[in-house]
Structures are given as C-alpha cells and as structure tokens.
Design a protein around this nucleic acid. Structure first.
Length: 989
RNA sequence: GCCCCGGUGGCGAAAUGGUAUACGCAUCGGACUUAAAAUCCGCCGCCUUCACCGGCUUGUGGGUUCGAUUCCCACCCGGGGCACCA
C-alpha cells in the first residue's frame, strides 16, 4: 500500500528531486493517510467503565488509570484560525499522546461554545439564522483542527447549542433555582455551609423552627402565594431582583460586572454602560465567596490566576457598627461597614451612597448654621438629594474615573450619633460610596483615609488623627497634620479614650494599643454593647444572569397571571428557542441611558403565551423572554465529555467518579477535577469563577463528587507578530515586506518604500495573518506542530517568525533520511548493538526527554531529540535500537511522520499506544567527566577525570596545573574548595 | 497609585548557586553542481591580536559567596492585573 502511494507521490515531484524525500507534498500525503486511519480505527477512543463508549478494541476502562485533558473550548466565530489559535490545542495533544504511551486511559475531546454574542453578531452580519452560520462555522473549525492531527475522541464532541445539551443546562439552572444556601449546614467533607433543596427551607418555615423574614410572627400557612414566592426568592441561589444593573444600550442588553471594563464600558464592543434599576435574574455567587477563596489552596493553578481570583472575590474582615440617626420619621439606624473600627474616635462625618434607604427620611428644611457649600445651592435636602441622585445615575464609571477621584457630595440634613462618644456627625451623600459594597454607608475618618481626607478638605470638615506612626519609623503625626491622612496598619492608637461611653457599655480606651489589638478590643466592646459585630465583606457581587438576546438558552420558567414565577418540570425540558421574525437584539444610541432593554424572544407571542398544566389544571402562562449568558454553557461542559449522549443524567455519577472524582488518579489531589486544563489567561476570573461556582453547587447537591472542576490549570502564552506601516501609517501586507541590512542597521521596505515595523497581535486589520493552511501547504502539519512546540516556553508569549519554521522541517527530513533512503525508498538499518557512545546518548536523551515532557517543556525536549538525531545522522546505517525510541519519543509532537516511520520500521500497529521508551541507568553515568579548575571563580583549567575520583586526588591534580602554579606565585593557597568530580575552586593567599 | 511577571548573542531561546549562550534561525566560509536551489560540513557574544595569550559580558548600581543569569537591596525599562471596595 505504501509503495503505490509513494509512486503517486513521486509523479507530482520535480524530476530532479530525490524520489523519497520528505517534503511538503510527501508530508501532506502521509498526514492525510494517517488521519484517515486513526479515524477508521478509533485510535483515540477513551474507554468508560461501562456502556457504549469503549476503546477501539471494545474494552471498558478496567483497571487503567484515567487522564482527563482538555482545552478551553472555542467560539466558532467564522473568522477562521490563524497560527496563534492552535498553540494550546497542540500542547494538550502532545500531553494526551504522551500519557497514552504511558498506558493511561486518556480522555481528550473538543466541544464548541456556540451560543453568545460573537456567534449572534456574525449571524446578524451575514443575515442568516445563527444556527445555520454557527453550524457551518463548527464544521469548518472541525476540519481545520482535524488537519492538525489532534487526537480527539470524536464520539464525545458536542456543541452547547445541541438540544441534548441545552436540556441539561436548563436542568442545572432548575437545580440552582430550587436551592438555597444554608450557611450552618455541616457538610460530610467537614466544611460548613451548603446549597440545600429549597424544600428543606419551606419545611423549616412550616414547622416554625426558622422565623420567616419580613413576616414576624406569621406562620407559613398564613402567607398568600405571592408572599411565599417573595420570601423564597430572597433565598434561592437563582433569583429575580430589581436592582441596579449594568445596562448597555449600544448592545441592547444588560451585562455582568465581570463583562464591564474599569472604564465602565462593555468588554465586547466598547460601548458605555449605565447603572439602571431593572428586574433581572441573578445567581447568588456571593454565598460561595469564602469557599471559592479558600479552595484555591487545593488547586494546581498559576499563582497569578489564583491572585486575580482572590482580588476579585476581595474578602475583607472588619466590623459592622450601628449609628442612631434622629429623623422626622423617628430614630433610624444606619449600619456602616469598616475594616478599621479602631478609628471610630476619628470619625468626623458619615457618608451614604445616593441609593441608600436613609435618604427616604430627610428633614423638610436645612438645619441652621449649615455652610452654604454643603447645601449645593438647593432649597432643601429633598430637592438636593433627588438632583444629586439623578446626576449620579447618569454618570458612567468612565465619567467617575475621568474626574480623577475628585469628590462630589451633598449634605443630607441628617446627623448620626457616634455610639461610643455620642458625637453628632453630619451625614452626606456622595457617589464615592457604593450601594452594593458593605452596607452602602460609611463612617468617614479623614485622619486615616485618603478619600475621606479629600472630602473633608473640600467641605471644611474636621480632621482627627487617632493613629500615630511607630516610634522607630522616624515619623510623627506632625509630618501629616494639615497635609495628608496617616494611612497605616503600623501604628499606635492615640486620642481614643472616653470615661463614659454613649451606648450601653463600660468606659473605653484604645490609647497605646497597636492597631490590630485595638481592632480586637473595640470589636468586642461593640458586640457587648449591642451596637455592632465583627463581620466579613466581599468585593464579589452576585452574578447577573439574564441577557436580552436571542442566541442563548431560554429560562425554564413561566409566569402566571399574578406575575409569579413557576419552574417548568424536568420532563418539559428543553425549552427550545422559537423562531422569531427578527433575532437581532434591539440596540439603542449607545449614549441613551434612559432606554430600556427589549428581549428578542418577546417578539413571538405564540411562544410567549402558553397553556400548561403545572399540576393544578391547564392555565395560561407567559414564558420568560430572557436568555442565559454564554457563560452558562461553558460552566459545566467538561463533565459532559464523559458521555454527551447520556439522556438519563447530566453526568453518570459512577463515570464521574472514575474520570474526575477526588483522587481518581495520582495527580488529581484533594480537589479532583480535570487533570489538565489549558487556555488563555483572559478567562482568569470570568469563566473560571462561574464554572467553579456551579460546580460547588452541584457538589453540595450531590451530583458530582469532586470539590473543584479543574485541578491543574495551564495558561498558554500568546503568539505575537510583526506588523508594518507605511509613511501614512497604513498597514501593508507583512508577507511582502523585505528586510535589508546595511552596516549593522536593519531596515524594511514594501514595494520599494520604507516601512516601520511594530510588534503586537496577529490580525486581519494588521495585514499580518498567517494561517495553519499556509503552514500545511509549505511544510505540513507535523512541521507546524514542531515549530509551535519548539519556539519557547509554552506559557510565555513570543513572536511568530515564519523564517524559523524551516529548522523544524530540516530536523524531520534528517530523521526521515535516517530511516528511509531518499533515492530508493528502502529501509536499511543496523540491527546490531549500537556503540557505547550512541547507547549513552540514547539513554540520557530518553531520560531528559521524559523529564521535560512531564514538566510540559516540549521546547527543551525537542532540543534533546535533535542532538540525538544529529548524532545518528553520522552513523550509517542507523542502528534500529536507537532510531525506534527516537521515533516513539517524537511521536506526540510530530505524530504523522512518526507513525509512517514506525510502520516502515515494520510495525503493524499504530504507535499511539506503544510503550514510551525507558532508559537504563547504567548508561547515564560518564566514564570521564570534565572537572573545572577555578581561581577566584574564573575558569583557569580543565581536567578529564573519573566520576568517582577522590577529592584529595582531584585537589592535588588541580594544584599541579601550570596555570594554577603560576597564579599562586609559589605561595600556599588560602583556601581550596573541592566538589568532586566537577569543581575545584582555589582561593590564592 | 497598589499588586504580579519579565529583561541573556543579530533573532527565537538554554542553563535556578558550579565550564553562560544547549537547540534552532540568519550571516559568513567550504563540499557537491556547468550553474542555481536543495542537501552536507565548518565558523559564529564583544574588545584587543596575523595568531596564541589576555580582558570584558546575562537591563543599571550595590551586597552575600571561593564562585551569582540564579539569592538579597535600590533603581531603570517592558508586559499584565486591579483601581474610589470603606
């Protein structure tokens, strides 16, 4: 069979080429042949423990160790791939193939994240239904990846838009909706706090063992349906709320905090985002804040990503303090959150956010003797606060940043009473205090906080310092007075003492204590006086979960004529997307903050209004017209690879235990989960935080047995590229640019005109795209894979340079020639024992390559293999005992050529499951080693010695060297350090 | 502003306390060829020198050490993350 194809191949060749040379055309023939054979034989099928999914021999997993390795699955965007995209896919493929050769049962598959904005926008551009364009794009992408020779188990592939899959995404939503978080629940893993079925909460309300919030004294039976629905909504992990959300008129949808940039613009499209109060779905991710934080410790993730998640969760420890606020409607309580309760004596005013409830209790008139500046020119507090709130609402986060931290604010006419000192603090409202962090109210301590200080200076408020620099810092408070706040945890509390406290409590003094001691003391005092308690606060917000989009999963929820939500029963899933006259989102003038979202699904009234029997007879309901964000599908897809066709479970629990359960193999550790997950660092908080949250809910509810979804995370670097601009700043085609060198100076021209080189991304608009297809045409997939793996460390970004690709091609050609005669196509080998030098190099290479592969450093593994191959090139004929291990070791990186050579070496079976070569320790040692003789750290001589030379003998030999004698000038050395057999370091007198 | 990562030949990069520059690219020289391409062999950090010898060299300056690309301190440059979070 090979001979025939070779003859076909050689007819297409230039006549003066050797007929059996490994070139691009030969590579293509070989690659396509092996790809077909792998497909036909099911070479990469992974075996489940039972059921239809067996390996190629029809066997189940048996005692084989599982290894689960996947990439972050792609959006099939329609733009096609450039050479940067497959880097991670090649890396996971190399790892997969390596582990297969170690005898493990490797699950390696690829799915498609096909809902969401990019797919929808592409469909809108092309005027076709998103399903049509998305499926075309998936087919195209599948082909492009197939051509790379990736070793996926294709039976396990699926897309998030598949009906089977949407059903289970909606099923998970239903489980989350039907759950609440019980912070006191003792989990079987020893932890505290768990998602529990909402039914348990209802039972507690019914039995009276738990009071019903908002309905003191009432029994569950006394509440009407709307009241019950409202109470449960406040506990559900998926809930509906009317609250300020990120509204993006330019995109026509609301967005999660994670999808909004620091400039207050949408991450996609870069449109302004406004805070609007709207009724939307949210997920109670904040309930999991602490567990999401602490379980980072059991993950094998890059520290950088852990740090980003820690910062995003933003757990801080402090105290909540109650201030009494006299108002026209009677005394109100203002709860503030502070991380520095030790500075209570330094509070000179208070600030509430513009949305704070306290602002509903304003006095009718300004109090007397209030500075005009505090009133902002308004006739009374009500008018002023209304105007200030409107102004704040209209501002984007970008506007606030542009103000550069400048503080604006307005006096409310109210005063808060300091619970310790009884001092009356004027209350302001200002937009630098955020409603959704802490309690939306702060005590302002201008002596210890930069923002409060700025505000105090602007409005003429007093500054009191209550912490003094440590004596050994060389600073005193006088260095700060009138200039700046003293913001530090390292200090001694001063000026913080009262004989009789205002609230019920003993006299209190914090003076002389260190800050941490003072925090402890004052917190205890607050608790005993009943005016506060220690508490924890999070930067993390609940996850806004609805979008006004067509191309997403519909919610499995309908509303009755009272507007109360009802969950659809599982047997009515999936809720399919309806056809609508127009699936594009209704967008607005990006600056139109007052516009309101309109969901495309609301355009099909036949779909929206349905008659259903939800247990109490047929009734008319209205469907929820929102869709889920595209993160929903990516939150759980990894576990669906276990069996995407399973119609009885989201995932079979036994199969889950085998593949992803805790300690399912040697590397998974306590967390369990995917053994290796590779993707870009851009998902450090978004996808990876949402997926961990869903996973933990499913874990609490008993559907999965591991605490975490992804045990080991690896972020591949970006492939960057050069781009060239002409004099007018226009990009010119990078492929046509010529490089010139003159007198050591490098310059670039395009069509004779000088151009400038810049460095950055690869992109169509930069005219520097290079596609995998370009590489297949010129070199073949194996050379392309080899180049991407040899460019440098996998986790670092580096520039693409097509000129360098040829090095990999030459390596493969030399390897080929070491097996196949280029002229005759014959395989002639030395079947005898290789010489000692070859055996030594072979064994050290096997050892080194194994170490490098384990550490995911294919670049250095390749360097070792090139050294071995270059050595074998000098032997003629090549020893079989050396070339076979080399072919096996290279096969994860360049699988097609290695399969071809393996077959020409006489093996019938694919090498995909051949055993990874092992080394013999006897060949690792050297007969002689080079010992280096240093004088004051500089190399002055070298000695060839036995590896087990005695230190005394080595020292004597070193000191006898003429170069050493000369430099010692006849004197005894002051010191000689001998590290036999490598180093002798001589220190002259 | 705060936090994190990085800086080594002409270029991509090796080496994590012990011979700095493995491996690859480019350049240059040689073999083969009528010639070119391809292929093979060789040189290849900088300065000085015909050459040997010698000196210098891992962003800059300092420190620890017999010995530092590697550890410590300060600074410069590049990249990334967060940014009124009380």
């Amino acid at each position: 069979m090979n001979a025939n194809e070779d003859r076909d191949h050689q007819q297409t060749q230039e006549s003066d080429q050797p007929q059996f040379r490994y070139d691009a055309a030969m590579a293509q023939t070989i690659e396509e042949r092996w790809q077909q054979r792998w497909d036909k034989e099911g070479t990469f099928w992974a075996a489940n423990t039972k059921g239809d999914l067996t390996d190629a021999h029809g066997d189940h997993a048996g005692g084989r160790s599982p290894y689960f390795v996947i990439d972050m699955f792609p959006y099939p965007s329609g733009k096609g791939l450039h050479v940067g995209h497959p880097l991670g896919y090649i890396a996971t493929d190399v790892v997969s193939r390596y582990h297969r050769m170690k005898g493990e049962n490797v699950l390696h598959a690829m799915g498609y994240d096909a809902f969401g904005l990019p797919a929808e926008q592409y469909a809108v551009q092309t005027g076709q239904h998103p399903r049509v364009t998305t499926e075309q794009n998936i087919a195209n992408m599948r082909w492009q990846l197939h051509r790379l020779g990736l070793s996926f188990d294709d039976r396990r592939s699926f897309a998030t838009i598949d009906t089977d899959y949407v059903r289970w995404t909606q099923w998970i939503f239903s489980r989350i909706y039907e759950s609440w978080y019980d912070p006191d629940y003792r989990r079987s893993d020893g932890g505290t706090g768990s998602a529990r079925p909402i039914g348990e909460l209802v039972e507690a309300f019914k039995s009276g063992s738990r009071p019903i919030p908002g309905h003191p004294g009432a029994s569950w039976e006394e509440l009407d349906e709307a009241e019950r629905s409202g109470v449960l909504n406040d506990f559900r992990l998926a809930y509906i709320s009317r609250s300020p959300v990120n509204w993006c008129p330019g995109l026509g949808t609301v967005l999660a905090n994670e999808e909004v940039t620091a400039e207050g613009r949408s991450e996609r499209g870069n449109y302004p985002v406004y805070q609007r109060e709207l009724k939307q779905w949210s997920m109670r991710i904040t309930a999991y804040g602490h567990r999401l934080l602490e379980d980072l410790d059991i993950l094998d993730w890059p520290e950088k990503v852990k740090l980003m998640q820690r910062n995003w969760i933003g757990e801080s420890h402090g105290a909540s303090v109650d201030f009494t606020v006299p108002s026209p409607d009677g005394n109100q309580t203002m709860e503030v959150y502070t991380t520095r309760p030790d500075t209570l004596f330094g509070a000179t005013f208070a600030v509430v956010s513009p949305e704070h409830d306290l602002l509903q209790h304003l006095p009718k008139e300004w109090p007397e003797d209030v500075p005009e500046q505090w009133k902002g020119g308004y006739a009374n507090p009500t008018e002023g606060v209304q105007a200030y709130r409107r102004a704040a609402e209209a501002k984007t986060a970008k506007d606030r940043v542009d103000e550069g931290g400048a503080k604006t604010g307005l006096f409310t006419g109210l005063y808060a009473v300091n619970p310790i000192t009884g001092a009356k603090l004027p209350i302001f409202t200002a937009d630098y205090v955020l409603m959704d962090y802490g309690t939306g109210a702060i005590m302002a301590v201008p002596g210890g906080d930069q923002r409060d200080y700025d505000f105090a200076v602007k409005y003429g408020l007093p500054v009191v310092y209550t912490v003094s620099p440590l004596a050994d810092s060389g600073q005193t408070l006088d260095d700060y007075r009138g200039k700046a706040p003293f913001v530090s945890h390292d200090g001694i509390v001063v000026n913080s003492s009262v004989q009789a406290t205002h609230a019920a409590g003993d006299q209190l003094s914090l003076d002389g204590l260190r800050v941490d001691q003072a925090i402890e003391k004052v917190t205890a005092w607050l608790e005993s006086a009943g005016v506060g308690h220690g508490t924890v606060s999070y930067r993390l917000r609940d996850w806004l979960f609805s979008r006004q989009r067509y191309w997403g999963e519909p919610f499995p929820v309908v509303y009755d004529d009272q507007g109360l939500p009802h969950l659809l029963p599982d047997d009515q899933l999936p809720v399919a997307l309806p056809d609508v006259p127009d699936y594009s989102p209704k967008t607005f003038d990006p600056e139109d903050a007052q516009s309101s979202p309109e969901a495309p699904l609301s355009r099909n009234q036949d779909w929206v209004n349905v008659t259903l029997d939800l247990g109490d007879g047929p009734k008319v309901y209205h469907r929820d017209t929102n869709t889920m964000p595209n993160w929903a599908g990516s939150c759980w897809y990894y576990m669906r690879y276990i069996d995407p066709k399973d119609d009885r479970h989201m995932v079979d629990p036994e199969e889950y235990d085998y593949w992803l359960g805790p300690k399912h193999n040697a590397t998974a550790g306590e967390s369990g989960g995917v053994d290796l997950y590779v993707g870009g660092v851009e998902h450090a908080v978004l996808h990876l935080l949402y997926a961990r949250f869903w996973h933990k809910v499913l874990y609490d509810l008993g559907y999965v047995s591991s605490k975490e979804p992804f045990h080991k995370l690896f972020n591949q670097g970006m492939i960057q590229a050069y781009a060239y601009t002409d004099q007018r700043g226009q990009y010119v085609p990078a492929a046509e640019v010529e490089e010139h060198e003159e007198g050591g100076k490098v310059s670039y021209t395009w069509q004779g005109q000088p151009v400038n080189r810049e460095f950055g991304k690869m992109g169509k608009s930069l005219k520097n795209i290079i596609t995998p297809d370009d590489m297949y045409r010129t070199y073949g997939a194996d050379t392309f894979r080899l180049y991407e793996m040899s460019m440098g460390p996998l986790d670092e970004s580096r520039p693409w340079n097509t000129r360098n690709v040829v090095g990999g091609m030459r390596f493969l050609q030399r390897l080929w020639r070491n097996v196949v005669d280029e002229q005759t196509g014959e395989v002639v080998l030395d079947e005898g024992e290789p010489d000692q030098k070859t055996l030594k190099l072979l064994n050290t290479t096997i050892h080194d390559v194994t170490v490098e592969m384990e550490a995911m450093r294919p670049n250095t593994a390749i360097a070792r293999m090139i050294v071995l191959n270059n050595h074998l090139t000098g032997l003629n004929p090549t020893p079989r005992a050396a070339i076979e291990p080399l072919v096996l070791m290279l096969s994860p990186i360049a699988p097609h050529i290695c399969e071809e050579l393996w077959s020409r070496l006489g093996h019938k079976e694919s090498l995909a499951h051949a055993q990874w070569p092992t080394w013999d320790d006897r060949y690792l040692g050297e007969d002689t080693v080079t010992a280096v003789v240093q004088i004051k750290g500089k190399v002055r001589g070298k000695l060839q010695v036995s590896p087990d030379i005695a230190p005394d003998q080595l020292e004597a030999m070193a000191l006898a060297l003429p170069a050493v004698q000369e430099r010692l000038g006849g004197k005894e050395p002051r010191k000689v350090i001998v590290k036999a057999p490598k180093i002798v370091s001589v220190v002259p007198a």
